[in-house]
Write a protein that binds this DNA or RNA. Structure first.
Lengths: 349, 349
DNA sequence: AGAGGCGGGGCGAACGTTCGCCCGAACGTT
DNA sequence: AACGTTCGGGCGAACGTTCGCCCCGCCTCT
């Protein structure tokens, strides 16, 4: 309350003096430990309130050997793009963390950096208690390091089957299944897939979803329909041009892409070929990047439950830090297909 | 180097024992203070390296009364949008901070929250040494509080003229001047302005830029051409429809918008009215939001030097924290117009 | 009446640093 | 020979908590 005194901050000892007890007793009361007479406790609380006492988190950290800080690093991506989910993910995680008395510390990583350097440093100097990892992939060196060093962490995304660790991930397979399902319902029979190279863990999950949905619908898959490129518009465009160059009977009438950027490229290629999007050529993307609803036509896409992911990850990590074992160590969240005009034939509702 | 011992971390005392000196001497050597014989220093450095000593930042913080942590809060925005610059800004700030041995702590704020609560708490509990503020506006309560409490901070954005504080801002006035300039060069004479309500500090700077450029070009400004709305596509669309409903001679042939979302709305309205974008109706936006280069046609926009802003802000804040006075306390950065097809008449180069 | 139990609270120590003071030896000066 | 300076390094204390132990007095039970 009092904003008067600038310099010297009020400590537990000031409170003790004001309440006429030893400072250790104040600590007990404020932390609700030990047995203290109700009237004494009352006096102490009141003194603390009156003096505007705030515990010094640094001293507490030193004593308890826990900083209540969680490290989060992400790979900043190329300058012409935005991370579509960073904002929401961070908001979610930060909020969940705060509710448990934790805060989130950002730190920079270059993808090709030795994790022992950046992650190790941070934990060895007692900067953070644990980590949130994102953008995981097969054989992620960070995962190996953290497991090896026994540092608590939770990942946003899975890795290879040989590594067991707590994670939350979005079921990309189900997402692509839903997209293909929807295209089939729209009457498409020849549906192509724009994917990422096989080295991408997410890419192969989504690819499996595509294959499953096609099989489920009893539709054959021409090997030519499965094409891979980088996460770039130009690649989506090029790959789709190749698809449209296939002979009449093998030429797909729709594509399901693993990312919105690829899907945007597909839309461009289809338009260039004189096809009416939606009516003659269906396109779906992935991520529901903000802005794609303003494309012409608006792009159908798979939206990840980013908010929930942030919440769950933080909850799991904090449970870990408290020494509890979370009920689930491996969580898979369902994404949701957002249908827009790029994949809908005008005739049908 | 040794990843062997898990539990007990190596402290300064271990190093001292290994080097055969008192632990305070180790501290002196590692911090380069006091005078120590070269051979002894050598011995100490070597022991530290061999044992893999890492200073405990918590203990150091406690003693030095400085956490080397910087707080950053931002207002998470509505779910259907992405903050176009958060990713890059954070990368930049985090990197600059790390170079100086600082880290960045995220914390959540609701816009209508009492700053004394969130900001005050963080600094009173010694969580952070200072703050970075973003999305400032006139009469920002956070600024008042931080000035009042004498907490070091640097803002990304200005406020009213009555508050003096260190900031870095992008010159929105110059940005709009450039946009209007460009439209004039494209042959437009009747140019409208899509703005934000007058309560927005950024909005009025950009509005001034529009007015200045029009005056400079010797063009009259019809009051009907200045329209305000919220940061939404639908508003941009509605406002532009109103503009296009003006009688022949007063109807603008181009609009300069204060944000990409408004500009996208303007593009939609123009297209709905049967106008060919670029050729018959010019549109410019602001922010260079990722993705707008994929619109049809790609949208001309004003790009902010976000990376540089992050760097400068952190540098200033750290200077402040070190007790130095930064050379400049008020920095204005030039934005850059990125010209795309939405504002260019096909005939001209 | 003495033993045992329990509620209430004090006290020393520790967490891992940094800071400032002091002391002894070596050296050079008057 | 006595004195002042400088260098090298030790030592106590402090930063603000929390933890565990101990002690005291009162109540209760045998």
């Amino acid at each position: 309350m009092h904003r008067g005194q600038r310099r010297r901050r009020v400590t537990i000892k000031d409170v003790a003096a004001a309440a006429g007890v030893s400072y250790q007793t104040v600590s007990k009361v404020l932390n609700g430990q030990g047995s203290v007479a109700p009237e004494t406790a009352q006096r102490i609380w009141e003194a603390a309130r009156r003096l505007g006492y705030r515990p010094n988190v640094t001293a507490r950290s030193l004593r308890k050997r826990a900083t209540h800080l969680i490290g989060y690093s992400w790979y900043p991506i190329s300058p012409d793009q935005t991370n579509p989910i960073l904002d929401k993910f961070l908001s979610s995680a930060v909020r969940a963390a705060e509710e448990a008395g934790y805060h989130i510390l950002l730190f920079p990583t270059e993808p090709d950096q030795d994790p022992a350097d950046s992650y190790g440093r941070l934990v060895e100097t007692n900067r953070v208690d644990g980590f949130i990892l994102s953008t995981t992939n097969y054989d992620d060196p960070r995962i190996r390091y953290l497991l090896d060093a026994e540092v608590p962490f939770v990942a946003f995304g899975r890795s290879g089957p040989d590594l067991r660790f707590p994670y939350v991930d979005v079921d990309g397979r189900a997402g692509l299944r839903a997209a293909v399902h929807h295209l089939v319902e729209q009457g498409h029979r020849r549906i192509a897939f724009l994917g990422w190279p096989p080295s991408s863990r997410q890419g192969s999950a989504r690819r499996n979803g595509y294959l499953e949905a096609m099989a489920q619908a009893g539709l054959p898959v021409d090997p030519e329909w499965i094409r891979v490129g980088e996460h770039r518009v130009t690649d989506g465009r090029r790959l789709t041009q190749e698809l449209l160059a296939l002979p009449q009977g093998r030429r797909p009438t729709a594509v399901a892409a693993v990312s919105d950027l690829l899907a945007i490229g597909a839309m461009q290629a289809a338009r260039d070929a004189g096809l009416r999007l939606g009516a003659e050529f269906g396109v779906t993307g992935f991520d529901d990047t903000p802005g794609i609803q303003h494309l012409m036509p608006p792009l159908t896409s798979v939206r990840q439950p980013v908010w929930e992911a942030g919440q769950r990850i933080v909850e799991m990590l904090i449970a870990l830090l408290r020494g509890e074992t979370p009920e689930e160590r491996e969580v898979l969240l369902e994404p949701r297909l957002i249908v827009r005009a790029s994949s809908v034939k005008p005739g049908e509702s």
